[in-house]
Amino acid sequence: MQNLASGKNEEGYQLGFSDEALMALVTKGEERAFVELVQRYQNELFRFCYHYLKNIEMAKECVQEVFLRVYIARDRYDTSKKFKPWLFCIARNLCINEIKRQQLVQFSSLEGEDGFQIHETEEIVEKVNSGENHPGEMVLKEERYKVLWEEINKLPEDEKEIVVLRYFQKLHARDIAEIIGTTEGAVRTRLHRTLRYLYQKMANRGEFNE
């Protein structure tokens, strides 16, 4: 038995059951499994929603709604498929609907209402500085991150979404494909082209030396 007082074991909430097994239990009416899933994904889902909505309270609200939708749709869940893409697909649809409802422009900028970009940049600088790199290298890295960040913000919406899902949400191409409704190959192709595009942009700004 792990630390019952905190409600977690040594691995956080990563216990023996897979997401799919837990979801199968949820379909059988086992709500403890649902609790486990909420605990497992609420943070990740919050970040995901935040990327779209760029507002903390809205993201929280969306996370709650996503889990309610999951519970409502539990009988329709196909346990032979992966749970995470299904969950994030629901979240994405909800976020997009919310954006449309509020007539926001999705991914118009990653700079959010809560000063996302400013904090992010400072945070990145802080983290880079805390490393063991040479001061000169750190400055270069910092500058390169800023340029890269700017160029990502200039990407078309579709490409930006894929980059965010792949590099910031750390999702696999297969999962991204399921979330946005395309093939894994198409996602990889688009990522490859985006890398080329970003390289060109970065090179034009003198960030890469041949």
């Binding site: 970040r47 935040y50 903390i56 809560d114 996302f116 904090h119 992010e120 400072e122 945070e123 990145i124 983290k127 880079v128 991150y145 890269l148 960040w149 590099y167 910031f168 750390k170």
Partner: peptide, 8 residues
């Protein structure tokens, strides 16, 4: 960049 990005 993804590893170091700041999230609320």
């Amino acid at each position: 960049l993804g590893d170091n990005i700041f999230y609320p």
